[in-house]
Amino acid sequence: HHHHHGSGALAALHAEGPLAGLPVTRSDARVLIFNEWEERKKSDPWLRLDMSDKAIFRRYPHLR
């Protein structure tokens, strides 16, 4: 159930192989992290948004 927010940013994801479903670039990863943060913020208003490279690598090590 993907609803768009204002920016309408869509992340490019790997379609197949071992990385299927994972973001292709760091900016794609940022979109995913932001979208998930927006969702989680509803139940956790104090949740901090962390889109640093460090956060991205921790989450998606293949982007190193």
Rank of each mutant, 00 (worst) to 15 (best):
G21W: 03
Y60K: 00
S52R: 05
K54W: 07
A9I: 15
S7N: 15
K54T: 11
H1M: 10
A15R: 10
P23T: 00
E36H: 05
L47Y: 14
R26P: 11
R59N: 06
H3D: 09
I33M: 12
W37L: 02
A11M: 04
A55I: 08
F34C: 07
A11C: 05
A55R: 04
R58Q: 15
R30M: 13
S43V: 14
K42E: 08
S27A: 15
N35F: 15
A20F: 11
A12F: 09
K41C: 09
L22I: 02
H62Q: 01
L13V: 12
Y60H: 01
M51G: 02
H62N: 01
N35D: 07
P45F: 05
L10Y: 07
I56C: 02
E36R: 03
D50R: 05
E38D: 07
R26H: 08
G17K: 08
E38G: 06
H4D: 09
R40V: 06
R64K: 13
P23R: 00
L47N: 06
A15N: 12
D28I: 02
S52M: 02
V24N: 02
L22N: 03
W46G: 14
V24I: 13
L47D: 05
I56P: 00
W46T: 15
I33K: 01
A11W: 02
L63V: 01
G21Y: 03
P18A: 07
A11P: 15
R59A: 09
L49Q: 02
K42A: 09
H14K: 02
G21E: 03
S52L: 01
H3N: 10
P18S: 07
A11S: 05
F34G: 02
V31P: 01
R26S: 08
L19P: 02
H62S: 02
A29G: 03
A9W: 12
G8C: 12
A11G: 07
A15M: 14
R59V: 08
Y60D: 00
A29H: 00
D44M: 06
E36Y: 04
L22S: 03
L13G: 03
L13S: 04
K41P: 06
P61Q: 02
L19Y: 11
K42L: 10
A29W: 00
E39K: 09
S27E: 14
H62V: 00
E38I: 15
E39G: 06
S27K: 12
A20C: 09
G21T: 03
A20E: 09
Y60L: 00
R26V: 14
R48S: 08
K54M: 11
A20K: 15
H14Y: 12
W37M: 02
K54I: 10
L49D: 01
D28T: 02
S52H: 02
S27W: 14
L10V: 15
D28C: 05
E36M: 05
V24E: 05
W37Y: 08
H3W: 10
H3Q: 10
V24F: 05
L49K: 01
